[in-house]
Computed example of a mutant assay.
Amino acid sequence: MRIPSTQALRALESFARHGSVWRAAEELHLTRSAVSHQLRLLERDLGFELLERVGKGVALTARGRRYAHDVHKALTMLGDAGMQYREGGIGGSFRICCTPGFASLWLCTHIAAFQEMYPDVSLSILTPRRLDDVSIPEVDAFIAFGDGNWPNHSVELLCDVRFTPLCSPSLLNRIGGISKPADVLRTNLLHLNDFEDWARWLALTKVENADPATGIIFSDMNLVFSAAIAGQGIAMGDELTGQKALSEGRLVRPFDMAIRASRSYYLVVDLTKKDHPVLPPFRDWLRSSLADEAADAQGVRERL
């Protein structure tokens, strides 16, 4: 089989990340029809369908998602190779400010891979006072949790967050199990910053006479999960930062029902720092690592 064109592969990778043709076209500086044409040519060259009609739009097939995941890794590897073999390589200091929960539960368990790829980069990881704070002047890049509105900054969505109840197995045993959504009210509700996420989940599941404004409020997700793992209540948590605790059995997910959080994780860079030489490889590594994690989680869900 002949190797598909790089432009077609880039069109697929961009479509897979953004989920829409028009956003892929915007990123690649092409027309929507040009992106659609590249995807059709790629299907022809591969001999299998990448896209399927969903309502009025299109989405990747299961096989298309797996192929796009591999393409993403391959393109990232090629880009990283180019960076590494440039004369002089990539070096210098790079300061990252990251929300405490994301830092301790995800970034700190993955960052050595970036350091191995760019050993001449001197990394520093800080945490902000607020989850959406991007005001520390000495920081080169922020991983912030917010609504995406940071004027005078470059803002890139890293991943949406879907919250669902998570708790420890010991808590389930202590309260006699959870069989219906209303059962969560038999223990403490653990909140991140406010009562909004639990209020939306209780409304989605139609729990009657529920008062979400009870329980304990924490300032970051690391504290929420620590309390949940210790059996202090049931958390409204997300699969990304909770993945390690879930895979190790320290947390369990009693329900499949989840809500999309009103806030998301973003890579935020002050416009005066947008030309920092370490930023492009860090951004690419971050995208690739998060995509790998999402693909792995999707594969587990499909096998269940």
Rank of each mutant, 00 (worst) to 15 (best):
A141E: 00
T76G: 14
S20L: 02
P128K: 05
F145M: 11
D284F: 08
H191Q: 10
K273E: 05
C167L: 15
T109A: 14
A74R: 10
L105C: 08
H153Q: 09
S170W: 07
V252D: 01
D284W: 10
H69K: 05
G242C: 11
W201S: 04
D238P: 06
G177Y: 02
V121K: 01
A8H: 03
A210Y: 04
A74I: 12
E239G: 02
R253Y: 04
L60E: 10
A112S: 15
G91S: 13
F102I: 04
R63A: 15
P280H: 06
L267V: 07
W106P: 02
N209M: 10
W201G: 06
W150S: 00
D197I: 04
P137G: 05
L223E: 02
S288Q: 12
L189P: 02
T187H: 13
L50H: 00
I178H: 06
D296W: 14
S93F: 07
D256S: 15
P169R: 06
P100A: 12
C159H: 13
E87R: 11
G148D: 09
L78M: 13
R2I: 11
G64S: 09
R10G: 00
T214W: 08
G215W: 04
E116D: 10
D132E: 12
A210K: 03
D194Q: 07
V134P: 00
S33L: 12
L192T: 05
V134R: 01
Y118C: 01
S93P: 05
S14L: 08
R263C: 11
S104W: 04
L158V: 05
F94H: 03
L51N: 01
Y67I: 01
L30R: 00
Y67H: 12
R63G: 06
P254Q: 04
Q38E: 09
R283K: 13
P151L: 07
S93Y: 05
S168F: 11
G237F: 08
D133R: 04
